[in-house]
Amino acid sequence: MKDVDKSFRKDTETEIPLREELQPRTVTAPDGQKIEIDPLQDYFCQEPPKVHKQSYLKIVEDFYNWARANSLWILGFGTGCGAIEMRPLMTPRFDAYRYGIQWRPTPRQANLLVISGYLSVKTLKRAIRAYEQMPSPKYVMGLGSCTINGGMYWDSYNTIKKLDEYLPVDLYIAGCMPRPEALLAGFMELKKKIRKGEGEGANKYAENFDWYKANQKSVIKDWDMPDYNW
């Protein structure tokens, strides 16, 4: 791999101003009084994520984990070209439903975020938002070499190369692209992990929240959302 090119220095000086709709402003109430609006404070919950303890009884937690493992609801969010590999999973040939895997249209009802390929910075922002809006416990699967080390986008100016820097990845499935069988194998692996109580990505994210945020903000320059998207 080529060494860092010393002759080119990226611009680290310029700051992106806050987007107009998020800038504090003053509006006039119907009765004439002036109201200060700070959109980020007023519109969004600012609470950081919590680390959720497990149940006091191990047997209860094991039962829960069994249920979680057998009821994986995927967020229907195709981030890259790998999304095309998920469609066959619904067909008679692969039929992922028999493993308790279903697709949900909203992050609130999903537990598993499949990052299906390369993530441009712009998509990363949406992926973070979607991930944070999912209720915990939640799991992330990285699909394909792009999420592992950048793959064929290793030298792209706007594609991240190492997903676990930004989101707590439970499982990678290698390949470019991995076939549906590989995905099924990955789901099986993930189920095992969850049943063993190792699917604690959400807690990991909450524990290392600052680190994740720093990484995210280092690539997403126009951070136009609260630190945690409830």
Partner: peptide, 18 residues
């Protein structure tokens, strides 16, 4: 449950504008 505010909604992974 955490009490959230008005823009804390899933918005197709976007953020409400106003």
């Amino acid at each position: 449950a955490t009490r959230v505010k008005q823009f804390n909604i899933v918005f197709s992974a976007e953020r409400p504008y106003k």
